[in-house]
Amino acid sequence: MSFETWLAFAAASTVLLVIPGPTILLVVSYALGQGWRTALPMAIGVALGDFTAMTFSLLGLGALLAASATLFTLLKWAGAAYLVWLGIKLWRAGGAMDAKPRADAASSLKMLSHAWLVTALNPKGITFFVAFLPQFIDPKADLFPQVGIFAATFLVLAFANAFTYALIASRARNAVRNPRTMGIVNKIGGSLLIGAGIATVGLRAGQS
């Protein structure tokens, strides 16, 4: 694999990751609510979620999802329902915002698991890896070293992207300490998460 190929993969991955999706909406919502301490567990959760989706893809689940409308639909509804549930919770939070972000293991584990589930349960992510990775694979070279490098690159970028979004949102948190303002932010964030869940249901099997 040439350096140019790796650089093209890294650049394409960065562009795709920077575009906000359900995962980033969740990261931003947590960061606004609990501050910068959410950055690390959320970023780890996102990376683990992408690793899960990538692993399923490499094991052939992505191809199965693209071929099986029933399986794709089941996974799609599971992911959509989880997003809607999170959105409703955020909407009902009103103007609540923790003045002192919790840094205990339980809350960190909860944030990590939420980020992992939202990322891993997105069927679009699984089919995306199936369609995306092969474009950069050299069939004349050993497969596993290439896949390993590409996977590690993508996971590092996914971690950095989520971490950066969380830090930026946590800085903006100081500007939304007013309960009324935070209530509006929670409602907007909740609506976006619910909308993302509904949009997920609209995905057709085989789309990347």
Rank of each mutant, 00 (worst) to 15 (best):
E4L: 14
T5A: 13
W6E: 06
W6C: 09
A8N: 13
F9H: 04
A10L: 13
A10M: 12
A11S: 15
A12M: 04
L16R: 07
I19K: 05
I19G: 01
G21C: 10
G21W: 10
P22G: 11
I24C: 07
L26Q: 03
V27Y: 02
V27N: 00
V28W: 06
S29A: 15
Y30F: 15
L40N: 05
M42K: 07
I44A: 13
G45Y: 06
G45C: 10
V46R: 04
V46L: 04
A47G: 13
A47F: 11
L48A: 14
L48S: 09
M54Q: 08
T55W: 03
F56L: 12
G60L: 06
L61D: 00
A63W: 10
A66P: 05
A69W: 11
A69I: 14
T70E: 13
L71F: 10
T73L: 14
L74E: 11
A80S: 14
L83K: 04
L83V: 01
K89F: 08
L90P: 03
L90Y: 03
G95R: 11
A96I: 13
M97C: 11
D98E: 14
A99D: 11
K100R: 14
P101A: 11
R102P: 08
D104K: 05
A106L: 15
K110R: 15
L112C: 10
A115D: 01
A115N: 05
L117M: 13
A120S: 12
L121H: 05
N122R: 05
G125K: 03
G125A: 07
I126T: 11
T127I: 04
V130H: 02
P134F: 12
I137Y: 07
D138L: 08
D138Y: 08
D138N: 15
A141G: 07
L143I: 14
L143E: 01
F144C: 02
P145C: 07
Q146N: 01
Q146P: 05
V147C: 02
A151M: 13
A152Y: 09
T153D: 06
L155E: 02
L155S: 00
F159N: 01
A162S: 06
F163N: 00
F163T: 02
A166S: 09
I168M: 10
R171F: 09
A172I: 10
N174W: 07
N174Q: 11
V176A: 07
R177G: 02
N178W: 06
T181C: 04
M182Q: 15
I184D: 05
N186P: 07
N186M: 00
K187L: 02
I188P: 11
G189D: 06
G189W: 04
G189H: 04
G189F: 13
G190P: 03
G190V: 00
L192P: 05
I194D: 09
G195S: 08
G197F: 03
A199L: 15
T200I: 07
R204M: 11
A205L: 02
A205W: 05
G206E: 06
Q207T: 14
Q207G: 09
S208M: 12
